[in-house]
Amino acid sequence: MVKADLTIDTELKGQIARARQAGATLDDTEPRAIRAWYEMVSQRVFIELRNGVIMGFPQTLLQGLEDATPEQLVAVEITSSGYGLHWESLDVDLGVPQLVAGIFGTQKWMSEMGRQGGRVKSDAKAKASRENGKLGGRPKRILI
Rank of each mutant, 00 (worst) to 15 (best):
L73W: 00
L73K: 00
R20D: 13
G64L: 08
T60I: 09
R18N: 05
S81M: 10
A22T: 14
E77S: 04
Q98D: 15
P70D: 02
V100F: 01
A22M: 13
M40I: 12
Y38A: 00
A33M: 01
G56N: 05
L85C: 13
Q59G: 10
E30C: 12
E71V: 11
T79F: 02
S80M: 04
G102S: 02
A75D: 03
Q43T: 03
I47K: 02
G82A: 08
Q59R: 15
L26I: 07
I16M: 11
D27T: 12
L99A: 01
K108A: 15
E71R: 13
F46N: 00
S80P: 06
G84H: 08
L65E: 04
A22F: 09
E88L: 10
R50C: 09
T25L: 11
D67I: 08
D67M: 12
Q98E: 15
A24P: 05
G84K: 10
V41F: 12
L94M: 08
A68R: 06
I103F: 10
D91K: 08
I103K: 15
I16Y: 09
T25Q: 10
D67G: 08
E30N: 14
V74S: 11
I47E: 03
L62N: 02
L90C: 02
I54S: 04
Q98L: 15
R35G: 01
H86W: 15
T29G: 08
L90W: 00
K108M: 13
G23P: 04
L65T: 01
G84P: 08
I47A: 00
D67A: 12
A101G: 07
P97D: 05
E66P: 02
T106F: 06
V45Q: 06
E30M: 14
F46E: 01
Q107T: 13
W87G: 01
Q107Y: 09
G84W: 05
A33T: 04
T29H: 11
E30Q: 15
L85D: 12
S89Q: 12
L73D: 00
S42M: 03
S89H: 06
A36N: 01
L94I: 06
E77I: 06
R32Y: 08
T25E: 13
F104N: 12
V96K: 08
N51R: 09
Q59T: 14
A19G: 11
I34H: 02
G64T: 06
G95H: 13
D67R: 12
D93I: 04
A33G: 05
E71A: 11
D27I: 08
T29D: 11
E48V: 05
Q63I: 00
G64A: 04
R18K: 07
L99K: 05
W87F: 00
N51Y: 07
R35S: 03
S80L: 04
G82C: 09
